[in-house]
Design a binder for these strands. Structure first.
Lengths: 191, 191, 191, 191
DNA sequence: CATGAATGAGATTTCATTCAT
DNA sequence: AATGAATGAAATCTCATTCAT
């Protein structure tokens, strides 16, 4: 029982540390040895637990599909919530960026592109599309809004564009309102 | 046939092939061996010509700062032009994506982040900011619009979101109009 | 047989074989592959254990600072002892030469020159200087005598001068007596 | 005729520059490219002129057998002359050291050991042996004296022992007298 | 089961050298 | 004869991964 506990604790620690590394340094920039070193265990354990480096990555990034959104509350509040989450929340475990943006750093590998798409679709587009209800090109509008949020996040943290890098939530609020209204054809609260 | 031993031709071919590889597989996913193999020369030649793998990358990606649109037309036409370039133009040499999006794939390394920022700022923001003239938060608006274009490009090609991946220029035109107007506070032609 | 996977044994064997190679072929003339091949292990192991080729060299040659004679006998006997050690002892692990002479073969690199100087000073000059006690230019005399021993060793093994290469200890004994007396101003036993 | 002259001039310059490099950095530490670069010609010329890197080395170091000694004057003056040459003369072309000591830096390669031996024997031992005339072990005495000079040179420049590195000719003069007398059994002038 | 010794493939890079022109 | 483009072999080193214990 104590053993079981240790095993699970080690697994969890490996996942946690690897998330940070993968997010900060990308898949290629992270070595199994580094991750194992962070936790203080032998690299071979990683292979026992996760089969391969890729397996570790999959499981580490899979954990990030959960925290996406809490779909309670009215749909109108979604844009503001999502922006806060994608752009302003500090994902400490993911080197300060939202997991999706962190994953982009490893998008060279084909299978990670798939994972990415799946998470974007299930985690974001599905939730957002309710907002576009009533428009003919509902899905396109939804994706265009998601693209905007994603682009902002990328310019802010991955590229480090001067103004956005320092912008606060208050700075963006009014523009969120106008763009959301432009795309969804309805007013959204942004406070 | 006339040029078997032609330094410039070989150099150019190396640059061309490396662009494709770097864009498709990222910096880490591309090996000098691969690039040299594509051209059919010995890997050592790459080092002779470019000093290092990093030198090759720099020079390969430097070519991508030129093709930015020069503002010889009226500023109002810029949004449409930029969208065509960023989202719809087929950059064959860069694996079908715009070079900037391709470069994101290698943004794990700190110095490439710098290069990226510089290109975004000088190549795009500087040109676009004229459009936001007259607004108090001119720079923020400019960056927000650029973020949108970039996000669209990423969802389209890097993530492969279902609707955007298949969208045509005509599909996006009306939305471009409303969003640009929302951000810049002026009408822009999108034809 | 009992030890197939024995870290310390493998380490020791690597050190032993590398000593021989470094001594015989010099630093540049020795490749990590060669050393690993001698022991029958993968070259990567060398880097795991010693970090780098230079680390291997350092550790291999560090073993050579110990075997210097400790002055437990009377100082008068030092010259004879040192000559035996420097000139006539067969350092099998170091390709038959005294480690110091072997190290000279790698003295092209600046840091190895430093290591060499330190070993000569601490290992030999410090011990010998007692013999020159009472003379005004004590240190110079000490170094001049050390120079002689070193020179003999070099001509014998590194250059292979005809007479010295075949000389026995008995052949040199009388000359050791006269030169030591000339430099130190006192009689030294040479039997 | 002009061509001939250029060719010879380039050859000479290559030899000169390579001497310096070989002496300073050793055989392995010197690249054909470096040498050619010093002179400002294409590396391929080295191969046209000298066949190989080794050929260049041979010819470069062969030039050093000439300046050895001027066997005019009485034999008694030889020790002082040789010491001046081996220990105190500044061989600018050979990085400040006597060619023989410089060559030791490349003594890892077997064929250089041979070259070294030949030069020591023909250039030094043959000349010196006259001084030992009349002693039974004439050759041994000669080699022992040569060993001393060589050892002094090595400690001075290659090892950098504290006192010898700064010693002047005057400092060594008296010891030269006593040691030479001890070995050759006759007085030698040292002024 | 877990540990750590060991492996093998592959990456970047350097260098002496040869082949066309 | 000379230039410079091109080559091939080898070196150091890293990493994911497997094999004994």
């Amino acid at each position: 029982m104590a053993h079981k506990r240790d095993r699970e604790a080690t697994r969890a620690k490996l996942l946690e540390c690897s998330r940070l590394r993968f997010a900060r340094d990308g898949y290629d920039g992270t070595s199994v040895r580094d991750v194992a070193g962070d936790v203080g265990v032998d690299p071979a354990l990683v292979f026992r637990y996760f089969g391969s480096k890729s397996g570790l990555f999959t499981e580490a990034m899979a954990g990030s599909s959960e925290p996406v959104i809490l779909p309670d509350g009215p749909v109108e509040e979604l844009p503001a919530k999502l922006m806060r989450q994608l752009v302003f929340e500090d994902w400490a475990e993911y080197a300060g960026e939202h997991p999706l943006i962190a994953m982009l750093r490893s998008a060279g590998h084909e299978d990670m592109k798939d994972r990415l798409r799946q998470q974007v679709c299930e985690g974001y587009l599905d939730v957002l599309s309710d907002l576009a209800e009533g428009n003919e090109d509902k899905n396109l509008r939804t994706e265009l809004f998601a693209a905007w949020l994603l682009g902002i996040g990328i310019l802010r943290t991955a590229v480090g564009t001067p103004t956005l890098a320092k912008a606060t939530e208050d700075d963006l609020r009014p523009h969120l309102a106008t763009v959301a209204e432009a795309l969804f054809g309805r007013e959204v609260p942004v406070d």
